[in-house]
Amino acid sequence: MERTSTGVPNEKMLMWTFIGSECMLFASLIATFLVYRDQSIVGPYEEELLNIPFITVTTFVLLMSSLMMVLALSAVQRGDPRGSRLFLLLTAILGLIFLGGQFYEFNHFVHEGLGLSRNLFAGTFYLTTGFHGAHVAVGVIWLLTLWTLALRGRLGPEKAVTVEVAGLYWHFVDVVWIVLFTVIYLMSGATGA
């Protein structure tokens, strides 16, 4: 590892700086979502569509993927190839399940009449959760790449920082979902109160 002024590897510092930038990206989306909440002038409206039990399950899946991610990192750091392969793959699979859930949800909403240009809820909902979903998809590709490296025995402890940086990204995507789950889904219960 190259010497750095702080002892923190450059890649890790880069990811944290990038995450700071991403905070503003999602803040802009969330602010727009909140400003336009209940401003749709035609239905279907959010309270008719949002399926809380369903999204709770996919939320739980994404949370557990974060657990798999830390276990994967810990396995790589320990130099445990079996654990590295297993947990990286599990993280990616849980991410894929989440994406599948999102695909099902979008599809269902469209069938309920919520096309992308139907009303303000459609635009803000699809773009906000869509941006998040795109981040999950990038993460899944990244994790699967690491997994293939692990399969070929090229992901030893010397690559721990690489996995840690991927993990930081993955956890951040999870953290964003913690916020979106609360703001978009659960707080819909407070509207009209």
Binding site: I19, G20, M24, A27, S28
Partner: peptide, 12 residues
């Protein structure tokens, strides 16, 4: 590096 940007984002 994280909480600075997060604070600005939340404030906005």
């Amino acid at each position: 590096l994280f909480f600075g940007p997060l604070a600005i984002a939340t404030a906005i």
